[in-house]
Write a protein that binds this DNA or RNA. Structure first.
Length: 267
DNA sequence: ATGACGGATCTAATCCGA
């Protein structure tokens, strides 16, 4: 038996609830982690998930911005949230999922985008993003434990092949050296296995996001890998497969991010 | 040629994403 987890920046869970249902039916992951739900908790669409066979829900949202959720067909326990940079802005939620091999901890993150100007002196959003990743690194002991999976929209494309043009994006927020180095420090601090790159060699391009502004996103293919699935070393060894659902970018009124799914051996 | 878009909100124009 295998355990599968998906991550997807949905860019409004209410607007795209039908796309989410379609995805759940098609990919049937055990757990789906959503970011940018843009939905206050009182308005979270619980019923559609229950009807789709995913009755176990954990969500933390706010009006208009941010928001994370864990949607599961297996029971969730120890639902928890963490705050970073002294803000209660719904960028993290975690839960324990029961598997045949015992409980497994899931962390779902939405790292700040960082604004336009990659200068923390001039742009507080960029400073916030760098501080957020630093705080995640400092909190290693809290997050990096055995039987743990960390997923989410980390809003940083760490490798040269995680963007359509390394050279042209060096000064573009999401791929600047100060960001990619920060993310690599975070990964090293937690000994996290980059599950996507476990299956796709670093020489190969790999994206999860294509801008809405490109009129022909597929032909121009100017993507970035902003979404990630990381696993603790013990689980990294048990990774069985990984899939980027690029087709979802062509669905009707799509998110600009596509789902990523990984499966792990359960025993 | 990183915007030619798209979502949410105090429905009109503004903020935000990355």
């Amino acid at each position: 038996m295998a355990f599968s987890v998906a991550t997807w920046n949905i860019n409004s869970v209410r607007l795209r609830i039908d796309l989410v249902r379609h995805f759940l039916q098609e990919a049937a992951p055990d757990v789906l982690c959503l970011q940018e739900t843009k939905c206050p908790d009182a308005l979270f669409p619980q019923k559609p998930f229950q009807e789709a066979g995913y009755p176990f829900l954990a969500f933390a949202g706010e009006k208009g911005y941010n928001g994370v959720a864990i949607v599961s067909r297996r029971p969730l326990a120890k639902i928890d949230r963490s705050y970073f940079c002294n803000r209660e802005d719904c960028r993290h939620i975690s839960a324990e999922v029961t598997t045949r091999a015992g409980p497994l901890t899931l962390h779902n993150f939405y790292v700040p985008a960082g604004g336009d100007e990659p200068d923390p002196e001039k742009n507080w959003k960029f400073a916030h993003k760098l501080a957020f990743v630093e705080e995640m690194t400092a909190a290693t002991e809290r997050f990096a434990r055995p039987r743990t999976i960390l997923v989410g929209d980390l809003n940083i494309a760490p490798l040269e092949t995680d963007v359509w043009s390394h050279r042209q994006l060096l000064k573009v927020v999401s791929h600047t050296p100060v960001e990619t180095e920060g993310l690599k420090r975070l990964q090293a601090a937690g000994k996290w296995v980059d599950v996507m790159r476990h299956f796709v060699p670093p020489e190969e391009k790999l994206y999860t996001w294509w801008s809405y502004r490109s009129p022909n996103w597929e032909a121009s293919d100017r993507g970035r890998r902003l979404d990630h699935i990381w696993a603790s070393p013990d689980l990294g060894e048990r990774a069985l497969s990984m899939q980027v659902l690029k087709a979802a970018r062509s669905w009707e009124r799509p998110s600009d991010h596509v789902p990523v799914v990984a499966t792990f051996a359960e025993e």
